[in-house]
Design a protein around this nucleic acid. Structure first.
Lengths: 254, 254
DNA sequence: CTTATCAATTTGTCCGACAAAGCTAGATTT
DNA sequence: AAATCTAGCTTTGTCGGACAAATTGATAAG
């Protein structure tokens, strides 16, 4: 053993990480509130006493984590991490783990049912109005698979919102991002698919209005089973969510 | 309008972002597989024709996103984004959105029930052995709230794993990360809490072994209701998951 | 009071440099 | 000859300085 090295090895993390952690702490514990400015790179350089390159690496970390962003004029400010940005990364992870549509379907079934149950219990007038607006627009584009698929995804987002449960909203998002893009393929490939979809949404909204949980759950099940039958006509549930398919869900990120 | 600027404004994204996107694409579409090396910073500098600082900023973005990491000797390599790293980001988001324990409880109830249903249907012998091992260790530390709480969290992770549904595993993680740390407080604060917890786990494992879905769901509900009653003795369900509390879930990240 | 102009900031990028840690391969020891 | 040691080469993390483009703010002009 060489000369006993008294007191070493305390400072483990690299500087850029410490910069990121320091800023993160201020945001998490509320000393910097969402929307408030973080300061310029120069100021951070001065405060932390490190080089600008180092500060910038730390900033990238936080930016990617969704904790800070640059406003219209590129000034740094704290922000609330947006669900769907984070969800995009989760979706990416799911793809890389090569999950199957069966797993996606099963989980979505669970989450959408929970979502509608919450909506039936707690939807506000505003929630219902939003859903009604979506339904109206959907009915108008029933023959256009792309537009209808997009509105379908929105409908389910609105329903999760109506549940007033933000944890649920977040939990369903990653699966939904991978699940719903297939709607277009299905509606386009199955005659009457569009009509059935709008009809299901109609019943769902109706159930929410009447606070009829049983009907809500029933129609959610039917709606998803419909999706499943449609999907099985064009692909296998046990195939993984492929890289090629991914480009749909992915391009949407931008 | 000044001199008509023929052909401009194509190159929107900053260079570091393009570097990150380029590497990300290679990983997502499978040309670089998890575990494979990305190359040294110098090589990336040469390939992309940008400065090393720029490359490094791009690397930070991917690193934070969990798509690449540095191995033991700090060389860059692609990797599979780990669920719990991503889940930590989500938990952080939930905290910042100031979700309540009620939302957390409701969603966890849904997800844990789905989890046990899957486990009852599809648990392998290995899954069951892991659960049994956990149960045995739990029984041995029934008087130690901290150790028991940790094993409780692990039990539920193992159950999700036993469901063979990776989407579900991922979906439950963020809520679980915030939900389970309270177990320690509850078990420590309620007499017989530890015993009841181990008993519930025992019944759950038993239900899985007997492939008895009804019993599995029943005991999951009881188990969580127990948590809820315990929680309400020490705090309100409608209080937000506070910043102070967060330090638990948070320190665990490290 | 609005508009045009101009200087000061700020960001994104580049260049070059250096210490510390890791790796490689030749030199040394057994 | 096998194991070990050592010295040199790489690579990463960090630093300092520099500059063009975009943005801001303030000042001057109408």
């Amino acid at each position: 053993m060489p000369t006993t090295p008294l007191f070493r090895r305390i400072d483990v993390a690299p500087a850029y990480q410490k910069v990121a952690d320091a800023i993160e702490r201020e945001i998490i514990n509320g000393r910097i509130k969402p929307g408030e400015p973080i300061g310029t790179e120069q100021q951070l350089v001065a405060q932390f006493g490190v080089n600008r390159s180092t500060v910038r690496e730390g900033i990238r970390v936080l930016e990617e984590g969704g904790l800070i962003r640059r406003d219209s004029s590129r000034r740094l400010q704290a922000c609330l991490p947006r669900y769907n940005k984070l969800a995009t990364r989760l979706s990416r992870a799911l793809i890389l783990h090569e999950v199957t549509f069966r797993e996606l379907f099963e989980t979505s079934m669970t989450l959408e049912v929970a979502s509608v149950e919450g909506a039936v219990e707690r939807a506000t007038e505003e929630n219902i109005a939003e859903l009604a607006g979506n339904l109206e627009r959907s009915a108008a584009v029933v023959g256009n698979p792309a537009a209808l698929a997009e509105l379908d995804a929105e409908f389910h987002v609105l329903m999760a919102k109506a549940s007033q449960n933000r944890v649920l909203q977040l939990a369903r998002e990653p699966a939904a991002q991978l699940f719903f893009p297939t709607t277009e393929m299905i509606v386009g490939g199955v005659p009457e698919g569009g009509t059935r979809l709008v009809e299901a949404h109609h019943h769902l909204l109706d159930a929410i209005k009447r606070r009829d949980k049983e009907a809500g759950v029933l129609w959610t099940r039917r709606h998803l089973q419909d999706w499943r039958r449609g999907f099985e006509k064009i692909a296998s549930l046990d195939r993984s969510v492929e890289h090629t398919y991914m480009e749909h869900a992915y391009a949407a990120r931008q």
